[in-house]
Amino acid sequence: MNHATPDLPCACPGCSCQVTDAARYERDGKAFCSQACADLHPRGQACPSAECHCESHVKVQDRAVSDSQLDEAIEETFPASDPISP
């Protein structure tokens, strides 16, 4: 017996696509229809659906990673990112 989950709306702002079992990408506990939507359309990458233009609904500042976010990510990996001292 196949237990398919019902299609959900994509969590990307303005996206009209549905998230299916075959095309499901997760980020921060939300389901998206494509990797482009999950990554908030880096460099304006278009939605894979020809009928949807949700990339135009994502603000540029939401796409970019800020220096403070990078600093926090580096701090989270320290000291694992440092080589072992002899």
Rank of each mutant, 00 (worst) to 15 (best):
R24H: 02
S34W: 00
A46Y: 03
C47I: 03
E51W: 09
E72K: 15
H57M: 10
M1H: 13
F32K: 02
L8G: 02
D62R: 09
Q18V: 10
D28P: 06
A73S: 14
G44Y: 02
Q35H: 08
A64Y: 12
S66R: 08
P83C: 07
S68F: 13
Y25W: 10
S85D: 15
R24T: 00
V60L: 11
Y25V: 06
L8P: 00
Q35A: 09
A11C: 08
A23W: 02
C33V: 01
D71A: 14
F32D: 00
H3Y: 12
E76P: 05
R43K: 15
A80Y: 11
S34H: 01
G14N: 03
A4G: 10
A38E: 05
A80K: 12
S68P: 07
A46M: 07
R43S: 14
Q35C: 06
I74V: 14
C37L: 03
Y25A: 04
C12Q: 06
A46R: 05
E26S: 08
D62G: 07
E26P: 02
I84Y: 12
S85I: 12
C33K: 04
V19C: 01
D39C: 09
E51Q: 12
A23R: 00
A23V: 01
L70D: 09
T20A: 03
G14A: 05
T5M: 04
C52V: 06
C15V: 04
C54R: 01
H3G: 09
C33R: 00
C15P: 04
Q69V: 07
S56W: 11
D62A: 12
T20N: 00
T5D: 03
A50T: 13
I74W: 08
A23N: 05
C17Y: 00
S56T: 15
V60K: 13
F32T: 01
H41V: 00
Q69S: 09
S34Y: 01
V65P: 04
H57L: 07
L8T: 02
V65C: 10
S49V: 07
C12L: 08
S68G: 10
R43G: 13
H57K: 12
S34P: 01
D28F: 09
R63I: 05
E55M: 04
H41A: 05
P83K: 07
R43D: 15
Q45N: 11
E72C: 10
S16Y: 06
Q45S: 12
C33Y: 02
Q45T: 14
A38K: 05
D67A: 14
E51A: 15
R43E: 15
S49K: 05
V60Q: 10
A4K: 09
R43H: 14
H41D: 05
H3Q: 12
P48Q: 04
V65I: 11
G14R: 01
P83W: 07
H3S: 11
S85W: 11
E75Q: 15
G44V: 04
C47Q: 03
G29L: 06
G14L: 03
S34D: 01
E51R: 11
D21S: 10
C17A: 08
V65E: 09
S49W: 04
L70F: 10
C52E: 02
